[in-house]
Design a protein around this nucleic acid. Structure first.
Length: 353
DNA sequence: AAACATTGCAACCGCCTTTAC
DNA sequence: CGTAAAGGCGGTTGCAATGTT
């Protein structure tokens, strides 16, 4: 295939660009247009290879480049697009005007990736992390949050602690279920598992609402409505990030002008395997997006149905289904959790798993 | 204040795809 | 149709800036 031009040009300069070089490049392109990158350096009086010039122009000098911090909306869009497209930075960049693929890639690796990891989401797969270290951290977090509640139940009048507790519970549960499924380990002695016989592979946990359904401000758009009509942030469970993001990604992302991606979405959606759909119908609701492969399938299905989802009663969201599932028998849930956590901690040695 | 660690990001490298001949 | 050149992309690196001990 084609050679890499820079390798055979031994005398070309490398490393950071000087202001003078920038000026030469900008000046040349503004007067003559881009032309052929290979011949551009010679004509512009630059001792650089064409590739280097292209990179400098595309990632830094181009006049339409947007500078400054990424907004919440951009964050959200990148996360959503990444769950659909994976590391296709160039494709993702086409949906964020003024942002370059390199910038988005760097931002993902330095910020968004860590954000997701902190939330217990695997940034590669967009699914809950299933490594045991993380699981144990969550267990600790859960323990701490319960302790805090018992010490001073009035310390948090707006219920943030309850949110953290609930979220952590959900995360622990989801992680454990996936662990159990991944290892085909079904402990028949555990009443919780007997009650919720889930023998399908983890992908089948997903029932279509597979975007991040976590009550974290990071995942909420500014236009997210507050049903209580006050100025406080809406921490209710009545709407999920899924509802918001599915519309958001559709409106501001794929649908806008990227016809290829949009068609891709539709073609995936049209190929939904109905038997698989039926199979997952009665299973547990999904909390987060899945790996790119299944995520693509599910998210595209979700996007395709976004209009329907948004028109449904807000009560019938996935997150609420989880909440109901966990809280229905609140009096006994404490013992359930104790059992589960005990089981987890005693089973956490590599030998057991 | 100095040494060390971490972070953020521009730039490079190598591979793949597209284009021209 | 085959091949080489050029463009484009994603992974990785190197280094300056910043934070921590």
């Amino acid at each position: 295939m084609g050679r890499s031009p820079c390798r055979n040009e031994s005398n070309v300069k490398k490393g950071p660009w000087t202001a003078e070089e920038d000026e030469k490049l900008t000046d040349y392109i503004s007067r003559h247009g881009r032309g052929t990158w290979r011949t551009l350096p010679k004509h512009a009086g630059l001792n650089r290879c064409g590739k280097s010039c292209r990179l400098r122009w595309e990632n830094y000098l181009r006049p339409d480049i947007k500078r400054g911090k990424f907004t919440e909306e951009e964050d959200q869009l990148i996360i959503n697009l990444h769950s659909v497209l994976g590391n296709k930075w160039a494709k993702i960049a086409t949906n964020l005007p003024g942002r370059t693929d390199n910038e988005i890639k760097n931002y993902w690796n330095t910020n968004l990736r860590k954000k997701l990891l902190h939330m217990g989401i695997d940034p590669e797969t967009h699914r809950p992390r299933t490594d045991l270290n993380h699981l144990m951290n969550l267990s600790q977090l859960l323990g701490m949050s319960n302790l805090g509640t018992s010490i001073n139940p009035l310390a948090n009048p707006i219920g943030l602690q309850a949110d953290v507790t609930q979220l952590t519970k959900l995360q622990v549960l989801q992680n454990m279920l996936q662990l159990l499924n991944n290892t085909s380990l079904i402990n028949m002695a555990n009443p919780y598992l007997l009650r919720n016989q889930i023998l399908n592979p983890p992908d089948t946990f997903l029932n279509g609402t597979n975007t991040l359904q976590v009550r974290d401000p990071m995942f909420r758009g500014p236009e997210y409505p507050n049903p209580h009509g006050n100025n406080e942030p809406d921490l209710s469970l009545s709407q999920t990030h899924s509802d918001y993001s599915q519309q958001n990604i559709f409106k501001s992302g794929l649908e806008r002008e990227n016809e290829t991606d949009y068609q891709e979405v539709l073609s995936y959606a049209e190929n939904i395997n109905t038997s698989q759909q039926n199979q997952v119908e009665n299973l547990l609701p999904a909390l987060v997006a899945s790996c790119p492969k299944t995520s693509t399938f599910n998210q595209m299905e979700s996007n395709y149905n976004a209009a329907q989802v948004s028109s449904q009663s807000p009560v019938s969201t996935t997150f609420e289904a989880w909440e109901k599932f966990l809280i229905d028998d609140d009096e006994t849930s404490g013992s359930y959790w104790k059992e589960i956590l005990d089981l987890t901690s005693t089973s956490a040695s590599p030998v057991s798993w």
